[in-house]
């Protein structure tokens, strides 16, 4: 926590989940561990302001109940609506939407936020306009989002930015070329929402031996150092590993600088049990 700086409230928003094997995200580790993998967004609130970080996944990516990598997907507009209703706000009340990156499970329904500025990284937009064949194949990016975003008040930034007092956007390329994280000053400490930079906490802390799953149960996992990676555990979806390591150190430096500092991983199965809001 930074003492003389504005404190924000951070609320976790549940945008649905998928069901698959952990090993699909953390290659070679726990290939047979089936878990629910939720999609997390966060809502930042202070002084009547509402900043939404990521907005879930559009149902058009679910074909026959299956989404990315053949996993079962439970996503769509109803999850966003429910999450906002639970937070007691409407899409019109959101003044800023920050997209950590423009993957289809993070940047949906932008047209709903009529009064908001939509902030993303310049390099992310460039990737969306010109994705690699593998990205098209896997449908990482939603090409229909291009015309949709063009009608919004979209603002592209290049690098880090203090969005407002107590909210810092940090360029963390690696997972995608224009990924960013959001560090927020709260009364409980500095919270860094890193989205897919670390899908799970065990990627930031590879020595972890167990996780809390979606149902609140403790599950044993294989610590990465036994196999590889004793600094950070790279996921199966990283477009530039050099950048990813640099960004990982950058995130670590930030959360270690502020006592206490927290990392919120964008797909941590049991995040709602370990993080009750700040």
């Amino acid at each position: 926590m930074v003492k003389n700086m504005k404190k924000w409230k951070v609320k976790l928003l549940y945008m649905g989940h998928s069901y698959g094997r952990k090993g699909q995200i953390t290659p070679n580790l726990d290939p047979d561990l089936w878990i629910e993998i939720p999609f997390w967004s966060v809502l930042l609130q202070a002084d009547g302001r509402n900043i939404l970080v990521d907005s879930g996944c559009n149902e058009r990516f679910v074909k026959g109940g299956k989404g990315f990598a053949g996993m079962d997907f439970y996503v769509g507009r109803k999850y966003l609506d429910a999450a906002l209703k639970d937070a007691n706000i409407t899409p019109e009340e959101i003044d800023t939407v920050v997209y950590t990156h423009l993957h289809n499970d993070h940047a949906a329904f932008s047209y709903l936020f009529k009064n908001a500025r939509i902030i993303a990284q310049k390099k992310e937009w460039a990737t969306l306009l010109n994705p690699l064949p593998s990205m098209l194949e896997r449908r990482d990016y939603d090409l229909e989002a291009i015309p949709e975003l063009k009608t919004t008040n979209m603002i592209l930034i290049d690098g880090d930015m203090d969005l407002t007092e107590g909210v810092r956007l940090i360029a963390t390329p690696g997972h995608t070329a224009g990924s960013m994280s959001v560090a927020v000053n709260t009364s409980k400490g500095v919270v860094a929402f890193v989205a897919d930079h670390f899908h799970f906490h065990c990627m930031a802390f590879p020595r972890m031996t167990e996780i809390i799953d979606f149902h609140g149960k403790v599950q044993k996992i294989t610590p990465a150092p036994e196999v590889y990676a004793d600094t950070f555990l790279p996921s199966s979806i990283i477009y530039n590993h050099y950048d990813w390591y640099d960004s990982s150190y950058k995130i670590k430096a930030i959360v270690e600088k502020y006592e206490p500092g927290y990392i919120l991983a964008g797909h941590e199965p049991g995040l709602m049990y370990t993080f009750k809001g700040a």
């Binding site: 302001r49 500025r117 902030i119 008040n153 603002i155 930034i157 930015m161 203090d162 407002t164 007092e165």
Partner: peptide
């Protein structure tokens, strides 16, 4: 106000900070 940046003016200019 400082917290409104980046700010898009009614004439389309985008103020940074």
């Amino acid at each position: 106000q400082p917290e409104e940046f980046p700010y898009r003016t009614t004439s389309g200019a985008l103020y940074d900070s």
